[in-house]
């Protein structure tokens, strides 16, 4: 029963909260949708912390796509041995994880010590950083320490297929029963973090301006689209 809760009900509930929350905020609270920067208040520490964290998390995201979304058979077909894959994952993922954790710690200390930044930060802001730190911390621990000291765990046989099965609405929850606790903790905390996204500053993930290079530099808008109305 516990397995069904954690690996079926919980992920779907959290993802539902995330999607509905995002839709609601986009439709009705778009005025609050921004990347809430404190660049204006402080620059020195942000210069180190922010790119470190953000680039780290972009790399980590790519790593998760490689590990969770792309099936193991794909790598085997390419002739990449399991050992080679894990070396890549430990080095690449470990580096990304360390970047994320180091960046987050710098940002957290900055948030706690720089006066205007602390005073203007709300509960949700601290929550986001702490939650990210927890998720990234467990992830980095798994990658760097657990995988090298305890066991080189083959998550591509359990967590990966389970994760993919969520999206075809046939969750293979039984795959998760034998997964080491630390991995379970990472997954559950990550899903909890997803649920919080619509209510925090993290919404800005979804507004990365990917179309910017493609648009003309100057933007004109008509006050009331008179042309469309057949001027």
């Amino acid at each position: 029963m516990a397995d069904i809760f954690w690996w079926v009900i919980f992920p779907y509930i959290t993802l539902t909260i995330m999607i509905l929350g995002l839709l609601y905020r986009y439709a009705f609270r778009q005025l609050t949708w921004a990347a809430p920067s404190t660049n204006f208040f402080e620059k020195k520490w942000l210069r180190i912390g922010s790119p470190l964290f953000h680039y780290g998390i972009v790399f980590a995201f790519i790593g998760h796509v490689m590990g969770m979304v792309i099936p193991m058979e794909f790598y085997q077909a390419l002739g990449i041995s399991d050992h080679l894959y894990h070396m890549g994952a430990i080095w690449g993922g470990g580096l990304a994880g360390l970047m994320v954790v180091a960046g987050l710690i710098i940002l957290l200390i900055r948030k706690m010590t720089i006066d205007p930044v602390r005073i203007k930060a709300g509960f949700a802001d601290f929550f986001s950083v702490l939650a990210l730190l927890f998720v990234a911390g467990t992830g980095t621990y798994m990658t760097i320490i657990f995988n090298t000291m305890v066991i080189e765990y083959e998550y591509r046989e359990t967590i990966g297929p389970w994760f993919r099965s969520l999206f075809v609405f046939m969750p293979k929850y039984e795959l998760m029963s034998g997964v080491p606790f630390i991995f379970k903790l990472h997954v559950v905390s990550a899903f909890a973090l997803f649920a919080s996204i619509p209510f925090t500053r993290l919404v800005h993930i979804f507004s990365f301006p990917i179309k910017y290079p493609a648009r003309p530099p100057q933007q004109y808008r008509s006050r009331s689209n008179y042309r469309k109305q057949g001027l």
């Binding site: 507004s207 910017y212 933007q219």
Partner: peptide
Amino acid sequence: VASCPTGALYKRD
């Protein structure tokens, strides 16, 4: 206007 990544700034026709 040209600096805005989202295209939120605009010049009115």
